[in-house]
Amino acid sequence: MIDHSSAPEKTEIYGKKHRKDNRIAVLLLVPVVGVLALVILIPGIIAGGLSFFSYRLGQAPAFTGLMNYKYLFNNSDFIFSIVRNLLFVGIVVFFQLFLGLIISLVLVRKFPFQKFWVACLLAPMAVSPSVAAVIWRYLLNYNIGPVNYILSSAGFPRIEWLTHPVFAFVSICLVYIWQSTPHIIIALYPARLTIPSTLYEAADIDGANTFQSFWTITLPLLKPVIVIMAIFRTMIGFRNFGLVWTLTRGGPNNATELISIFLYNEGFRYWRFGSASAVAVIMVLITLLISGKYIRMMQNNTFGSQTHA
């Protein structure tokens, strides 16, 4: 933690107007802090409170204590949505990191038209969930989809990608990995570029092969970035709504119902805002559990370094 009050050049430059600065400094933060408080913090606190009430839209809330939480933890749909979400996040984060790392390492070997290839590899992250759904509902279509066409012409049976419970889950994982791996590339590729080539030359002289230098140089030096990305992508994976909703609506038979889909159904389909709030509270707790350390890291990285310039 860097203590702001001990940043010397601050006080040197603007020292005399210190008191006035303080007021302006706070005033300039008002729009950002205000909008965040109004739209996120206060509703967040209200949701925390509502989770102890039975509340349907249009009716007066009635205090019910821990009823909503009891209801949720006795609800197998909810438990399964958590388990499913854990599985989903485990699978997608692993493959994102794995593929993102391989792609970053391949890209380091500079190719002609490098910029073009990089842009192609990053393109999926620019696709809106509903457009991604159009693309993949076509590609994975049982009758007319190119994927099944390739499978059947290679002698394999056609697969019910989006209508069979197991394959629907596989499909949402696949599409999600497709869409989010670029986020890993934009973190790992630049990080790999900053590793000085002299390290590899030295390892080469010492007789290390490619795999040895990967294990002893590349991986340890990229580890901090990989860890941050793993935490961050886990957090993001827990809140995915748009892609799964547009692809499968949580079906078939709840096979792809993640927590966010469960929350949507609870709140916006059955109008049970009390128990939906309880789901929200549980989601926030899970998020904070995952990202607690990450928040501190971000604060130090972006706001802590006041010693610039």
Binding site: P43, A47, L263, M283
Partner: peptide, 8 residues
Amino acid sequence: PPIIIMVP
């Protein structure tokens, strides 16, 4: 998470 804010 964005969607939870929408509940309250």
